[in-house]
């Protein structure tokens, strides 16, 4: 087990280097000289030379790459180009609001989707099943933008059930008052695809021999579905949830933007709008690292759920 984890972490190094080189090439080479971006429209040759020296872009490329690698390792990306706030401070303060939104959403979304998927798969090919699937397909096709705009208008602006936008300092106030409508919208958007996917996972299990054996020995339908089928279907479900987890940090960016929630996703949008390269670079590299770690955790969780799985 330990040997496996060590080997997996060892294998992450070339991928991580690749991510660093990709981000480096993107921002230092494809995008042209960053000094011109930072200096903006009004700039003299002298100013640009100054900025180039500050950023280190007057050095050869391999030196610049080394500077970037050191930044990634020490977590010191310098200051944001637009607000002068240290990038590490931006990341630390924006993570909280994002997680306040994402953790309750992820838990609710997964539980509701699993429950519905088991129910729908149990009555498979019935009218209920087909109606639910059609609703899901249509629901999936409506842009998330439309959901956000309409829900915000109807439930916050017209009916006044929720604040239109905002964020406070108290965790509970944020969670109950400000995060509830965003979480509801995210649930509406995410349950449709998850339900469709989880239903196929459950359907793969529901015709297996062990289900028939369970019925034959007189187990209740509830026990068959919630204990036997669910445990077997949970392997692909865990893969799916773990694989989407780091992406969610960014995926909620539209919600964060509409509701002015100071999270990571909104920070990315702001950084792209302001060409704030250090912030985008830092977020990209760290989210990529998180993705790799979560993939490893997903593999370790299979082992916990299904002892037959051999980690190689």
């Amino acid at each position: 087990m330990t040997a496996y984890i060590v080997r997996r972490i060892w294998q992450m190094i070339p991928t991580m280097l690749g991510v660093i080189v990709l981000v480096f090439l993107l921002f230092n080479w494809v995008g042209g000289d960053p000094a011109y971006v930072l200096a903006g429209k009004i700039s003299s040759a002298e100013q640009i030379a100054n900025i180039r020296r500050q950023l280190g872009v007057d050095q050869p490329y391999y030196v610049q790459l080394w500077i970037f690698i050191k930044q990634v390792l020490t977590g010191n990306f310098g200051a944001s180009w637009s607000t002068n706030e240290p990038v590490s401070h931006i990341l630390a303060t924006r993570l909280g609001p994002s997680l306040t939104l994402l953790i309750p959403w992820l838990i609710l979304s997964t539980l509701i989707s699993i429950g519905l998927a088991l129910a729908v798969a149990y009555v498979r090919a019935s009218l209920t099943d087909r109606m639910v699937m059609i609703t899901c397909t249509i629901g999936l096709s409506i842009s998330i933008l439309v959901y956000i705009i309409v829900f915000q208008y109807v439930f916050a602006y017209k009916l006044g059930w929720f604040p239109v936008q905002g964020w406070g300092d108290s965790f509970w106030q944020n969670l109950i008052v400000y995060a509830s409508l965003p979480i509801i919208i995210l649930l509406v958007v995410s349950i449709a695809p998850d339900l469709r996917l989880f239903r196929t996972f459950v359907l793969d299990e529901i015709n297996q021999d062990y289900v028939r054996t369970g019925r034959a020995k007189g187990l209740s339908e509830n026990r068959i579905m919630w204990v036997h089928v669910l445990r077997n279907a949970s392997i692909p479900i865990i893969t799916h949830v773990m694989a989407t987890l780091p992406g969610l940090l960014i995926g909620a960016f539209l919600i964060e933007r509409f509701f002015s929630i100071p999270g990571i996703g909104r920070e990315v949008i702001l950084a792209v709008e302001r060409s704030d390269f250090p912030v985008i670079k830092a977020i990209t590299v760290y989210v990529a690292a998180a993705t790799m770690i979560f993939n490893l955790l997903a593999d370790l969780m299979y082992k916990a759920v299904d002892p037959r799985v051999q980690l190689k």
Binding site: T15, M16, G18, V19, L22, V23, L26, F27, P246, G247, L249, I250, G251, F253, V268, I269, V272, I280, I283, T284, V287, A288, A289, T291, M292
Partner: peptide, 10 residues
């Protein structure tokens, strides 16, 4: 390794 939307935005 980089989430798709983040890559696009970058």
């Amino acid at each position: 390794a980089i989430p798709y939307l983040l890559l696009i935005l970058a």
